[in-house]
Protein backbone atom coordinates (compact mmCIF):
# COMPACT_ATOMS: atom_id res chain seq x y z
CA UNK A 1 0.00 0.00 0.00
CA UNK A 2 2.67 2.49 1.01
CA UNK A 3 4.62 1.89 -2.19
CA UNK A 4 1.65 2.68 -4.34
CA UNK A 5 0.93 5.79 -2.30
CA UNK A 6 4.44 7.09 -2.92
CA UNK A 7 4.12 6.44 -6.61
CA UNK A 8 0.83 8.21 -6.66
CA UNK A 9 2.09 11.18 -4.70
CA UNK A 10 3.94 12.26 -7.82
CA UNK A 11 0.71 12.26 -9.79
CA UNK A 12 -1.03 15.57 -9.32
CA UNK A 13 -4.68 15.45 -8.34
CA UNK A 14 -6.56 16.51 -11.47
CA UNK A 15 -8.64 19.61 -11.24
CA UNK A 16 -12.35 19.33 -10.83
CA UNK A 17 -15.02 20.42 -13.26
CA UNK A 18 -15.84 23.91 -12.09
CA UNK A 19 -19.26 25.21 -11.16
CA UNK A 20 -19.15 27.50 -14.16
CA UNK A 21 -18.82 24.49 -16.46
CA UNK A 22 -21.71 22.77 -14.72
CA UNK A 23 -23.87 25.87 -15.11
CA UNK A 24 -22.91 26.07 -18.77
CA UNK A 25 -23.99 22.46 -19.20
CA UNK A 26 -27.34 23.27 -17.58
CA UNK A 27 -27.63 26.33 -19.81
CA UNK A 28 -27.07 24.22 -22.92
CA UNK A 29 -29.67 21.70 -21.82
CA UNK A 30 -32.15 24.50 -21.19
CA UNK A 31 -31.58 26.09 -24.60
CA UNK A 32 -32.42 22.75 -26.22
CA UNK A 33 -35.98 23.16 -24.91
CA UNK A 34 -37.40 26.24 -26.60
CA UNK A 35 -40.66 26.25 -24.66
CA UNK A 36 -38.93 26.04 -21.29
CA UNK A 37 -36.54 28.77 -22.42
CA UNK A 38 -39.47 31.05 -23.24
CA UNK A 39 -40.95 30.31 -19.82
CA UNK A 40 -37.69 31.11 -18.10
CA UNK A 41 -37.29 34.37 -20.01
CA UNK A 42 -40.82 35.52 -19.12
CA UNK A 43 -40.27 34.52 -15.50
CA UNK A 44 -37.02 36.48 -15.43
CA UNK A 45 -38.75 39.58 -16.84
CA UNK A 46 -41.36 39.40 -14.07
CA UNK A 47 -38.60 38.92 -11.52
CA UNK A 48 -36.80 42.04 -12.81
CA UNK A 49 -40.08 43.93 -12.64
CA UNK A 50 -40.46 42.91 -9.02
CA UNK A 51 -36.92 43.98 -8.19
CA UNK A 52 -36.73 47.27 -10.08
CA UNK A 53 -40.43 48.04 -10.66
CA UNK A 54 -40.62 51.62 -9.27
CA UNK A 55 -37.61 52.63 -11.39
CA UNK A 56 -38.85 51.03 -14.61
CA UNK A 57 -42.49 52.04 -14.40
CA UNK A 58 -43.32 55.07 -16.59
CA UNK A 59 -45.62 56.52 -13.91
CA UNK A 60 -45.77 56.35 -10.17
CA UNK A 61 -48.16 53.62 -9.09
CA UNK A 62 -49.97 56.03 -6.79
CA UNK A 63 -50.01 58.90 -9.25
CA UNK A 64 -53.67 59.80 -9.60
CA UNK A 65 -54.84 61.77 -12.57
CA UNK A 66 -58.60 61.98 -12.27
CA UNK A 67 -59.23 63.80 -15.62
CA UNK A 68 -57.55 60.89 -17.43
CA UNK A 69 -59.53 58.20 -15.59
CA UNK A 70 -60.75 55.07 -17.39
CA UNK A 71 -58.82 55.81 -20.55
CA UNK A 72 -58.50 52.98 -23.04
CA UNK A 73 -54.96 51.81 -23.94
CA UNK A 74 -52.99 54.48 -25.78
CA UNK A 75 -49.31 55.03 -26.47
CA UNK A 76 -49.07 57.09 -23.30
CA UNK A 77 -50.90 54.48 -21.22
CA UNK A 78 -50.30 51.15 -22.98
CA UNK A 79 -52.68 49.27 -20.63
CA UNK A 80 -55.02 52.18 -20.11
CA UNK A 81 -55.88 53.91 -16.82
CA UNK A 82 -58.11 52.93 -13.91
CA UNK A 83 -60.90 54.63 -12.04
CA UNK A 84 -58.46 57.01 -10.33
CA UNK A 85 -56.60 57.71 -13.55
CA UNK A 86 -53.62 55.63 -12.42
CA UNK A 87 -51.55 53.96 -15.13
CA UNK A 88 -52.49 50.25 -15.19
CA UNK A 89 -49.17 49.29 -16.82
CA UNK A 90 -47.16 50.87 -14.00
CA UNK A 91 -49.37 49.30 -11.37
CA UNK A 92 -48.85 45.87 -12.91
CA UNK A 93 -45.08 46.34 -13.03
CA UNK A 94 -44.89 47.41 -9.41
CA UNK A 95 -47.53 44.89 -8.41
CA UNK A 96 -45.16 42.05 -9.35
CA UNK A 97 -43.28 42.95 -6.19
CA UNK A 98 -46.15 41.89 -3.94
CA UNK A 99 -46.51 38.56 -5.74
CA UNK A 100 -42.84 37.74 -5.47
CA UNK A 101 -42.52 39.04 -1.94
CA UNK A 102 -45.47 37.09 -0.59
CA UNK A 103 -45.45 34.06 -2.87
CA UNK A 104 -41.66 33.82 -3.22
CA UNK A 105 -40.72 34.36 0.40
CA UNK A 106 -43.59 32.20 1.54
CA UNK A 107 -42.50 29.39 -0.78
CA UNK A 108 -38.88 29.63 0.35
CA UNK A 109 -39.98 29.48 3.95
CA UNK A 110 -42.22 26.50 3.15
CA UNK A 111 -39.28 24.75 1.45
CA UNK A 112 -37.01 25.28 4.44
CA UNK A 113 -39.53 24.09 6.99
CA UNK A 114 -41.09 21.40 4.82
CA UNK A 115 -37.65 19.96 4.02
CA UNK A 116 -36.76 19.82 7.69
CA UNK A 117 -40.00 18.07 8.56
CA UNK A 118 -39.68 15.70 5.58
CA UNK A 119 -36.08 14.79 6.37
CA UNK A 120 -36.74 14.09 10.03
CA UNK A 121 -39.97 12.26 9.37
CA UNK A 122 -38.60 10.07 6.58
CA UNK A 123 -35.23 9.32 8.12
CA UNK A 124 -36.19 8.55 11.70
CA UNK A 125 -39.60 7.08 10.94
CA UNK A 126 -41.56 5.45 13.72
CA UNK A 127 -43.88 7.34 16.04
CA UNK A 128 -42.38 10.75 15.23
CA UNK A 129 -43.08 10.19 11.52
CA UNK A 130 -46.61 9.13 12.34
CA UNK A 131 -47.32 12.21 14.46
CA UNK A 132 -45.80 14.69 11.99
CA UNK A 133 -47.55 13.17 9.00
CA UNK A 134 -50.96 13.11 10.69
CA UNK A 135 -50.53 16.77 11.65
CA UNK A 136 -49.78 17.60 8.03
CA UNK A 137 -52.80 15.55 6.97
CA UNK A 138 -54.96 17.83 9.12
CA UNK A 139 -53.55 20.87 7.32
CA UNK A 140 -54.05 19.21 3.94
CA UNK A 141 -57.63 18.28 4.67
CA UNK A 142 -58.76 21.93 4.86
CA UNK A 143 -59.18 23.73 1.51
CA UNK A 144 -56.19 26.04 1.21
CA UNK A 145 -58.04 29.31 0.58
CA UNK A 146 -60.39 28.62 3.44
CA UNK A 147 -57.48 27.88 5.74
CA UNK A 148 -55.75 31.07 4.62
CA UNK A 149 -58.89 33.11 5.32
CA UNK A 150 -59.31 31.59 8.77
CA UNK A 151 -55.67 32.17 9.67
CA UNK A 152 -55.59 35.73 8.36
CA UNK A 153 -58.92 36.46 9.94
CA UNK A 154 -57.42 35.48 13.28
CA UNK A 155 -54.03 37.18 13.07
CA UNK A 156 -54.77 40.05 10.68
CA UNK A 157 -53.39 40.61 7.19
CA UNK A 158 -49.94 42.03 7.89
CA UNK A 159 -47.12 41.38 5.44
CA UNK A 160 -45.36 38.94 7.80
CA UNK A 161 -48.59 37.10 8.50
CA UNK A 162 -49.30 36.75 4.78
CA UNK A 163 -45.87 35.21 4.22
CA UNK A 164 -46.36 32.84 7.14
CA UNK A 165 -49.75 31.77 5.86
CA UNK A 166 -48.33 30.93 2.42
CA UNK A 167 -45.58 28.95 4.15
CA UNK A 168 -47.95 27.04 6.41
CA UNK A 169 -50.15 26.12 3.45
CA UNK A 170 -47.29 24.65 1.44
CA UNK A 171 -45.26 22.94 4.16
CA UNK A 172 -47.31 19.70 3.93
CA UNK A 173 -46.78 19.28 0.18
CA UNK A 174 -43.04 19.99 0.36
CA UNK A 175 -42.64 17.77 3.41
CA UNK A 176 -44.37 14.89 1.65
CA UNK A 177 -42.18 15.15 -1.43
CA UNK A 178 -39.01 15.27 0.67
CA UNK A 179 -40.17 12.44 2.89
CA UNK A 180 -40.87 10.13 -0.04
CA UNK A 181 -37.45 10.94 -1.50
CA UNK A 182 -35.82 10.16 1.84
CA UNK A 183 -37.70 6.88 2.17
CA UNK A 184 -36.38 5.86 -1.23
CA UNK A 185 -32.84 7.12 -0.70
CA UNK A 186 -32.29 5.78 2.78
CA UNK A 187 -32.43 2.18 1.59
CA UNK A 188 -29.86 2.87 -1.14
CA UNK A 189 -26.54 1.15 -0.68
CA UNK A 190 -24.51 4.35 -0.49
CA UNK A 191 -26.53 5.44 2.52
CA UNK A 192 -26.04 2.03 4.11
CA UNK A 193 -22.34 2.33 3.37
CA UNK A 194 -22.32 5.58 5.33
CA UNK A 195 -24.13 3.96 8.25
CA UNK A 196 -21.65 1.09 8.17
CA UNK A 197 -18.81 3.62 8.48
CA UNK A 198 -20.52 4.99 11.57
CA UNK A 199 -21.38 8.40 10.12
CA UNK A 200 -23.48 10.68 12.31
CA UNK A 201 -27.14 11.12 11.39
CA UNK A 202 -26.53 14.75 10.47
CA UNK A 203 -23.85 13.73 7.95
CA UNK A 204 -26.08 11.06 6.43
CA UNK A 205 -29.00 13.47 6.20
CA UNK A 206 -27.23 16.54 4.86
CA UNK A 207 -24.37 15.05 2.83
CA UNK A 208 -25.70 11.75 1.55
CA UNK A 209 -29.46 12.15 1.33
CA UNK A 210 -30.32 15.85 0.90
CA UNK A 211 -28.09 16.53 -2.16
CA UNK A 212 -29.83 13.70 -3.98
CA UNK A 213 -33.26 14.96 -2.99
CA UNK A 214 -32.48 18.47 -4.20
CA UNK A 215 -33.46 18.26 -7.89
CA UNK A 216 -37.04 17.05 -7.27
CA UNK A 217 -37.25 19.49 -4.38
CA UNK A 218 -36.36 22.43 -6.64
CA UNK A 219 -38.95 21.33 -9.17
CA UNK A 220 -41.56 21.00 -6.43
CA UNK A 221 -40.63 24.43 -5.06
CA UNK A 222 -41.13 26.10 -8.43
CA UNK A 223 -44.51 24.36 -8.78
CA UNK A 224 -45.47 25.60 -5.32
CA UNK A 225 -44.46 29.12 -6.32
CA UNK A 226 -46.79 29.07 -9.29
CA UNK A 227 -49.62 27.93 -7.00
CA UNK A 228 -48.76 30.68 -4.56
CA UNK A 229 -49.27 33.30 -7.29
CA UNK A 230 -52.89 32.27 -7.47
CA UNK A 231 -53.20 32.19 -3.73
CA UNK A 232 -51.72 35.65 -3.25
CA UNK A 233 -53.86 37.06 -6.07
CA UNK A 234 -56.97 35.47 -4.56
CA UNK A 235 -56.19 36.93 -1.16
CA UNK A 236 -55.62 40.29 -2.82
CA UNK A 237 -58.97 39.99 -4.57
CA UNK A 238 -60.63 39.36 -1.23
CA UNK A 239 -58.89 42.37 0.22
CA UNK A 240 -56.59 40.36 2.45
CA UNK A 241 -53.44 40.84 0.39
CA UNK A 242 -51.15 43.82 0.05
CA UNK A 243 -53.06 46.76 1.46
CA UNK A 244 -53.93 49.69 -0.79
CA UNK A 245 -52.72 51.99 -2.15
CA UNK A 246 -49.84 49.53 -2.85
CA UNK A 247 -50.66 47.86 -6.16
CA UNK A 248 -51.79 44.26 -6.11
CA UNK A 249 -52.94 42.26 -9.11
CA UNK A 250 -55.73 40.58 -7.20
CA UNK A 251 -56.92 43.87 -5.78
CA UNK A 252 -56.77 45.45 -9.24
CA UNK A 253 -59.08 42.77 -10.56
CA UNK A 254 -61.46 43.34 -7.69
CA UNK A 255 -61.56 47.08 -8.37
CA UNK A 256 -62.07 46.44 -12.09
CA UNK A 257 -65.26 44.49 -11.49
CA UNK A 258 -67.31 47.69 -11.24
CA UNK A 259 -66.00 49.06 -14.53
CA UNK A 260 -66.17 45.87 -16.55
CA UNK A 261 -68.34 47.32 -19.27
CA UNK A 262 -66.65 50.66 -19.68
CA UNK A 263 -63.03 49.71 -19.05
CA UNK A 264 -62.42 46.00 -19.62
CA UNK A 265 -58.64 46.58 -19.83
CA UNK A 266 -58.61 47.25 -16.11
CA UNK A 267 -59.50 43.61 -15.60
CA UNK A 268 -57.86 42.07 -18.65
CA UNK A 269 -54.28 43.15 -18.05
CA UNK A 270 -53.85 42.15 -14.39
CA UNK A 271 -55.56 38.85 -15.18
CA UNK A 272 -53.24 38.38 -18.14
CA UNK A 273 -50.23 39.13 -15.93
CA UNK A 274 -51.31 36.46 -13.45
CA UNK A 275 -51.86 33.78 -16.07
CA UNK A 276 -48.67 34.66 -17.92
CA UNK A 277 -46.56 34.38 -14.78
CA UNK A 278 -48.24 31.13 -13.74
CA UNK A 279 -47.81 29.54 -17.17
CA UNK A 280 -44.22 30.78 -17.43
CA UNK A 281 -43.39 29.40 -14.01
CA UNK A 282 -44.91 26.04 -14.90
CA UNK A 283 -42.98 25.87 -18.16
CA UNK A 284 -39.83 26.80 -16.31
CA UNK A 285 -40.31 24.14 -13.63
CA UNK A 286 -40.96 21.57 -16.35
CA UNK A 287 -37.72 22.58 -18.04
CA UNK A 288 -35.95 22.63 -14.70
CA UNK A 289 -36.82 18.99 -14.19
CA UNK A 290 -35.30 18.06 -17.52
CA UNK A 291 -32.20 20.13 -16.88
CA UNK A 292 -31.57 18.76 -13.40
CA UNK A 293 -32.72 15.19 -13.99
CA UNK A 294 -32.12 14.40 -17.65
CA UNK A 295 -33.48 11.08 -18.78
CA UNK A 296 -36.19 11.05 -16.15
CA UNK A 297 -38.74 13.10 -18.02
CA UNK A 298 -42.09 11.52 -18.35
CA UNK A 299 -42.67 12.49 -21.98
Amino acid sequence: MSASVDAAAATPVPTRRSRVQTLRLYGRRLLRQPIATVGTVIFTIFLLMALFGPWIAPYGYEEQNIPDRLQSPTLLHPFGTDNFGRDVFSRIIVGARGIFLLGGTGTILAVLMGTTVGLISGYFGGLLDEILMRLLDVLLSIPSLLLALVLLGTVGPSLLNLILVVAVLYIPMIARVVRSMVLDLKTKEFVEAARIRGERDSYVLFREILPNALPPLLVEASMRFSYSIFLVASLGFLGLGVQPPSPDWGLQINEARNYLEGAPWMLAFPALAISLLVVATNLMSDGLRRVLQPGREDS
Binding site: K188, E189, F190, E192, A193, I196, E208, P211, N212
Partner: peptide, 13 residues
Amino acid sequence: MVFQNPDASLNPR
Protein backbone atom coordinates in the same frame (compact mmCIF):
# COMPACT_ATOMS: atom_id res chain seq x y z
CA MET B 1 -18.94 -4.14 2.70
CA VAL B 2 -19.14 -4.14 -1.10
CA PHE B 3 -22.72 -4.14 -2.36
CA GLN B 4 -24.38 -5.89 -5.25
CA ASN B 5 -25.83 -2.98 -7.18
CA PRO B 6 -23.04 -0.79 -8.55
CA ASP B 7 -25.51 1.94 -9.48
CA ALA B 8 -26.68 2.45 -5.93
CA SER B 9 -23.48 1.87 -3.99
CA LEU B 10 -21.96 5.26 -4.77
CA ASN B 11 -23.55 8.59 -3.93
CA PRO B 12 -24.49 10.06 -7.33
CA ARG B 13 -23.66 13.57 -6.06
